[in-house]
Design a binder for these strands. Structure first.
Length: 293
DNA sequence: TAGTGATGGCTAA
DNA sequence: TAGCCCTCACTAC
C-alpha cells in the first residue's frame, strides 16, 4: 500500500533496526542472489526515501534501490528471542522472499517489489534526477513541479500522479487534496492558477508527515486535528517506533472525503461521489463541489 | 476455496 | 496498451 509516506516510514524503520552495523543479506527466492551477495556482510549506513523509491546506502558505495510497486511489501520484524543470533538459514522463510536483511535482533523480508537492485552513487543520482519534488523532503521545491504543470494540457489529476511532477503522491492523496481544494480533476494543468498549485502542495506538505507518523493516510479535518494534537502532546514518536508491518495498529478509522466512496453522498453537498479511470487508476471526485469555476 | 482489484510503474510491442 | 511483479484484503460461492 505504498504511497510516499509508506516509504519514508519504511526507511526510518530499516534504520532503527539495521543502521550502523553489518547486515546479513540473502535472496531466499533466488532472483536477487547476485545483488544480495554484494550487500551481505556490509554495514548499512543509512536509508532514505524519495517519493516511492527507497535507497539504502551500504559500505563500499553500494546502494540498495527498492520500489515496492503496487503489491510489494517489506515488513521489518523483531526476531523471536529463540532466533536471536542464529545463522541466516535457520530463520524460517515463507513465500517468495526476494531479499532478506537480517541481524541479531531483526529480519526484513522483501516480497513482490517492482524494483530491487544494487546501484552505484551515479545511478542513484540518475534515478533521483528523474523525480519531481517530494513534499516529505525538506529540500523540496514545488516550483520545479509547477514548471511542468503550467505547460501541460493533461488533467491536473493525471499530473498529480506523474512522479516527474510530484514524487510520492498516489491515488488516495491526489483524490483527497483535489477535493479539499475544490479543484476539477479534469482541469488542464495549463489552466491551473499558481496559487491553486501551491495550495495543493501545502496540503500535501502538511498531510503526508501525518501519514508517516501514524502509518495511514489522514485527510479528514477532525482526524487531522486529532493527529496534530497527539503529535503536540508528544505521544507519537513511541507509536511510530512500535510500527513494524504496514497495517499494524491502525490508530484512526479509515475514512476519506471521496476516495473509494463511489455512489455515496458527498460529505459537503450530498450529491453522489463519482468515479472514473484516469492515469491508470480510479479517480474519485464530487462533480458538484469540484465543478470548474 | 477461488477470484478479483488495489495506495505503481516499468518494459515490450 | 498489455503484461508483469505474485501480496493482501475482501467478496462470492
Amino acid at each position: 500500500m505504498p504511497e510516499g509516506h509508506t516509504i519514508h516510514a519504511l526507511a526510518a524503520r530499516l534504520d532503527r533496526a539495521f543502521a550502523g552495523h553489518a547486515v546479513r543479506a540473502s535472496s531466499p527466492q533466488g532472483r536477487f542472489a547476485e545483488g544480495a551477495a554484494l550487500l551481505d556482510g556490509q554495514a548499512l549506513l543509512g536509508s532514505q526515501a524519495w517519493g516511492k523509491h527507497l535507497f539504502c546506502e551500504f559500505d563500499a558505495d553500494r546502494w540498495l534501490h527498492v520500489h515496492l510497486g503496487l503489491i510489494g511489501v517489506f515488513p521489518v520484524v523483531p526476531l523471536p528471542m529463540e532466533l536471536h543470533g542464529v545463522e541466516p538459514e535457520q530463520v524460517p522463510v515463507t513465500g517468495a522472499v526476494r531479499l532478506r536483511l537480517l541481524n541479531q535482533t531483526h529480519v526484513a523480508d522483501l516480497r513482490g517489489p517492482m524494483t530491487c537492485a544494487v546501484r552505484t552513487p551515479e545511478e542513484v543520482a540518475a534515478v533521483e534526477a528523474r523525480l519531481g519534488p517530494d513534499p516529505l523532503r525538506p529540500d523540496a521545491d514545488p516550483g520545479t513541479g509547477w514548471d511542468r504543470v503550467r505547460r501541460s494540457r493533461k488533467p491536473v489529476a493525471e499530473l498529480l500522479m506523474d512522479q516527474q511532477v510530484l514524487a510520492g503522491v498516489g491515488n488516495v492523496y491526489r483524490c483527497e487534496v483535489l477535493f479539499a481544494r475544490r479543484v476539477d480533476p479534469y482541469r488542464p494543468g495549463r489552466e491551473l492558477r499558481e496559487s491553486t498549485w501551491l495550495s495543493l502542495w501545502q496540503d500535501l506538505v502538511e498531510l503526508m508527515p501525518l501519514g508517516v507518523a501514524f502509518g495511514q493516510i489522514l485527510t479528514m479535518d477532525d482526524q487531522v486535528a486529532d493527529a496534530r494534537a497527539e503529535i503536540a502532546a508528544g505521544g507519537v514518536e513511541q507509536y511510530t517506533a512500535s510500527l513494524t508491518g504496514e497495517r499494524l495498529g491502525e490508530r484512526f478509522e479509515r475514512r476519506f472525503f471521496v476516495y473509494q466512496r463511489t455512489g455515496e453522498p458527498c460529505r459537503q453537498c450530498g450529491s453522489r461521489v463519482r468515479s472514473a479511470p484516469l492515469a491508470g487508476r480510479t479517480l474519485y471526485w464530487c462533480g458538484r463541489c469540484q465543478r470548474r469555476r
